[in-house]
Simulated assay, not measured.
Amino acid sequence: MTLRLPLPESNKGIAACSLVISLVALGLKYAAWAVSGSVALYSDAVETIINVVAAVGGLWALAVSERPADHNHTYGHYKAEYLSAVAEGTLVLVTAFIIGREAVEGWLHPHPALAPYAGVALNGIATLVNLGWGLTMLQAGRARRSPALVAGGQHVLSDVWTGVGLVVGILLIPLTGWVRLDAVLAGLIALNVLRVGWNVMKDSIAGLMDQAPDPETLDQIREVIADNGRGAIEAHDIRTRVVGAMTFLDFHLVVPGSMSVHDAHEICDRIENALRGKMGNTLVHIHVEPDNKAKHEGIVFWPRPETPVSNKA
């Protein structure tokens, strides 16, 4: 099922909404811990504090990434989103340490929850809020190719699984009489937080290191070039990277040596326009070469170069 919630047009607006919702979830989870005294619910509330801090960082990063290119950043500010995601991953790891310490303390000095059912009810409401917003953020981040929104959505959804586990686990404590189950649940929360933090940092570091996009995206790029390169001989040395919502692409385009600059430029324009239509925001650099530079690899236009697109000199 796909959510169809109305969203702000800018990614920065979505991040602002995320901050507000994180504060609402934090209030509910703090109340859940306050009425129950559960170490597991305390751990969940601590994790939500990191969500609030991460939402502030995401809002800053998206505000920076939307700035136009300037003389100091001629390729734009898109990588600010990755910096935010790496910072969020680091905060998540710190949170896991804090929660793990509380879990050990709860195991060594267990005590029964004061009002487990009231705490579970409040935590359950916060979990439903996170479920709706986490799915919305994840869908918006993927559709808009925003690393900061995707990382935020993944982090919020990790809270959902934590919330479900807490609801089930804390309800079992009075039924089983095993008070240390509270500490076990806190320990499992810490492990889940570590997993999410590692995934967020891994994806963000890959973006900072200009990792090539997935094979499906590369196939789409090659298909667009092949479909719109009529008149050329081949395209080789294709390189691409995706930074936030921007795709950077460069390659060599071999054309007949006798082709005019005008005709070669028209082929380049046709390819660039098709790539932007398919990929969205795309910065394309095409190095045009004569036929004696052909490598007979990459994309070879078959069966032979067609008549130039125009006869203008």
Rank of each mutant, 00 (worst) to 15 (best):
3 L>M: 12
5 L>W: 02
6 P>M: 10
12 K>T: 15
12 K>F: 12
14 I>C: 09
14 I>Y: 02
17 C>H: 13
20 V>E: 02
28 L>M: 13
31 A>N: 03
32 A>M: 00
39 V>Q: 12
40 A>L: 08
42 Y>K: 12
47 E>N: 15
47 E>P: 00
52 V>K: 08
55 A>P: 03
56 V>K: 08
61 A>C: 11
62 L>F: 07
62 L>R: 05
67 R>S: 09
68 P>L: 06
68 P>E: 11
75 Y>W: 10
77 H>A: 10
80 A>D: 03
84 S>L: 06
84 S>K: 07
85 A>E: 08
89 G>A: 06
90 T>L: 15
94 V>S: 11
95 T>V: 06
98 I>S: 13
101 R>M: 06
102 E>T: 03
104 V>M: 12
107 W>M: 14
108 L>A: 11
116 P>C: 12
119 G>N: 01
128 L>R: 05
130 N>M: 14
142 R>P: 05
143 A>G: 04
143 A>T: 13
144 R>K: 15
144 R>W: 03
144 R>F: 11
146 S>G: 11
150 V>N: 05
152 G>A: 15
152 G>T: 09
153 G>L: 04
155 H>W: 09
155 H>T: 05
158 S>M: 12
161 W>R: 08
163 G>T: 06
166 L>W: 12
175 L>V: 14
176 T>W: 07
180 R>I: 10
182 D>E: 09
183 A>M: 11
191 L>H: 08
193 V>L: 07
196 V>T: 15
197 G>T: 12
198 W>Y: 15
200 V>D: 01
205 I>P: 02
208 L>H: 09
212 A>G: 06
213 P>F: 05
219 D>V: 08
220 Q>C: 07
221 I>V: 15
230 R>G: 12
232 A>N: 11
233 I>S: 07
236 H>F: 13
242 V>N: 05
244 G>I: 10
247 T>E: 00
250 D>N: 14
250 D>P: 01
250 D>E: 08
258 S>T: 13
259 M>S: 02
264 A>I: 07
267 I>G: 01
267 I>W: 03
270 R>V: 00
271 I>A: 03
272 E>D: 15
272 E>N: 12
277 G>D: 08
283 L>F: 06
284 V>E: 01
286 I>C: 01
287 H>W: 05
290 P>D: 09
290 P>V: 09
291 D>V: 01
296 H>L: 07
299 I>D: 00
303 P>L: 02
303 P>F: 09
304 R>K: 13
304 R>T: 08
304 R>A: 14
307 T>Y: 10
